[in-house]
């Protein structure tokens, strides 16, 4: 793989990889580091690229493995990135009160997704936030497609229950 091919095929998915790493680590700086490492690893394994069916899924798997290694390596402290949750754009908000309310709501959604078991959370995020197909998710996580569907169904069910609590009782 030449550098032109690398730039044409890998660089466009960089943002998606970053968002994935950011969600796993919850920290912008660490996510940036992981992406640098992942890109270097992809470059070093460029010979394998010809055999791959899905380049994006492969890159996401590399990113995920590196992020999980980082989490394991130093008892990574996952932080709820409240600041980021508050940065949610509120385009149709008219006043600061509504903006604050919206930010609070986003923070609660962020919290309830983060409380899901790791597997559920990752599958939900890969599907609903990164827009990956079931097949791609199965490749990233190295599991069966049927398992992806089952876990996604369970994850959405849990999220729905939490959302109902949030909606009806205002609790998380």
């Amino acid at each position: 793989m030449s550098s032109e091919v690398f730039i044409a095929q890998i660089m466009p998915i960089k943002q998606k990889l970053y968002r994935f790493a950011l969600r796993l680590l919850g920290n912008e700086e660490d996510a940036k580091d992981i992406i640098q490492d992942a890109l270097v690893k992809v470059w070093h394994n460029k010979e394998k690229m010809g055999e791959l069916q899905n380049l994006e899924a492969w890159c996401m798997r590399i990113t995920r493995n590196l992020a999980l290694d980082k989490i394991k390596s130093r008892k990574y402290r996952m932080t709820d990135d409240l600041d980021r949750a508050q940065e949610v754009p509120a385009t149709h908000q008219q006043n600061p009160h509504q903006t604050a309310e919206q930010s609070d709501l986003m923070r609660r959604v962020h919290g309830l997704i983060n409380k899901l078991p790791e597997k559920f959370r990752t599958i939900l995020q890969l599907r609903d936030m990164d827009g990956l197909s079931y097949q791609e998710i199965a490749e990233v996580l190295e599991i069966e497609m049927s398992e992806v569907k089952i876990n996604l169904h369970r994850a959405r069910k849990q999220v729905r229950e939490q959302l109902q609590n949030l909606h009806v009782y205002g609790i998380q």
């Binding site: 968002r19 940036k32 992406i35 754009p89 986003m106 959604v109 962020h110």
Partner: peptide, 12 residues
């Protein structure tokens, strides 16, 4: 809305 907002995250 949360999913939509997450799409706006861009890498520095």
């Amino acid at each position: 809305q949360y999913y939509h907002a997450a799409e706006a995250d861009t890498m520095p």
